[in-house]
Structure formats: C-alpha cells, structure tokens
Design a binder for these strands. Structure first.
Length: 150
DNA sequence: GCCAACGTTGGC
DNA sequence: GCCAACGTTGGC
C-alpha cells in the first residue's frame, strides 16, 4: 500500500465537494511527474491526504482513497474545457487520471506552516521551497507522523 | 494582488 | 541542444 498527497484548490474542488459526491475523477493534472505517479505507482486502495492549496490556510484537510486504475482524462479531448490539450489524441492520450473516493475529514487542518516547522517532515517534497507538484508520494513514516498530529 | 520558483515552448 | 521568454503554481 502506498500513501499520497493530492492538492486541490478548494474554490475549484474542495473536500466538501468530494464528500458530497463520494467519488470523483481527479481530472486536470497537466504535469508529467504527477501523471507518472498516478499511472505507474498508484493502486486501488492507496491512501491519499487531501490538501487544500491557494487558500487562507493551506494544509491537509482529509483522507481519501484511490478508487480506480489510471485511465485517460476526458477533459483533454474537449475543446470547450479549460484543460483541453490540442496535442493529445484519443488513440494516444497524453493525460490520465484516477478516481478518488472520500474517506473522512481530519479533526483539524494540518497546516502547511505546521508541517514546515516539524523537523520530522523536513524530507517531504511538500515543504521544500518552490515545490509545485500536485500529486506526490508520502512516506509511511511521514503518513503516520502527520496522522498523529491530528 | 504580488512574485518567486519552476516547467514548457520555440527560435536559433 | 541551448536558453530566453512565457505561463502556471501557490504561498504569502
């Protein structure tokens, strides 16, 4: 079992939205490194920290699970969609996604500021300067450590 | 809203 | 293959 952190801007798609829907295709990832993690390393049942970015208090707000294998992200084929990619085609899709299912809300937000101040988490890509990865692996030790902060 | 950091694009 | 220009991410 692997552990992950996935970022979403709450104004675009929040943990509340995921709870309401139960399950959702994680569309719109347009970064090769993030795509490769989803395509190559994610498995159904993996655990995911749901992270809110670009908001008043960026941080981890909940837990989700990977609910499908990787498959082509339909938004890349739709010219009317903001995530349309003219260089992609249906026979050779460039972008994929996985479905994510709601598991639970954290009792409190584990903020980015708090994680940055925690020496035990210094190796997380998340807290490193300039990090822009929207899908990243979380080590088992870091996963447990963060859950214990809750 | 600002801007630093970073990825991508395209001219050469 | 280099690298300047540009666009995006995301904290603050």
């Amino acid at each position: 079992m692997n552990y992950w952190l996935m970022k979403s801007e709450p104004e675009a798609f929040s943990l509340d939205d995921l709870e309401r829907k139960g399950r959702e295709p994680w569309d719109g990832v347009r970064n090769y490194q993030a795509r490769n993690f989803m395509r190559d390393d994610m498995r159904v049942g993996d655990k995911v920290f749901f992270y809110h970015s670009n908001c008043a208090t960026p941080g981890i707000v909940g837990i989700a699970t990977v609910a499908s294998d990787a498959y082509p992200d339909p938004t890349q084929f739709d010219p009317k969609d903001g995530h349309f990619d003219p260089k992609s085609s249906r026979d050779k899709p460039r972008w994929i996604l996985v479905d994510i299912a709601f598991e639970r809300r954290l009792e409190r937000t584990i903020s980015l500021a708090e994680m940055k101040d925690d020496p035990a988490l210094a190796d997380m890509p998340l807290v490193r300067k300039g990090n822009r990865l929207s899908v990243m692996p979380v080590g088992k030790a870091a996963w447990k450590h963060i859950l214990a902060l809750e």
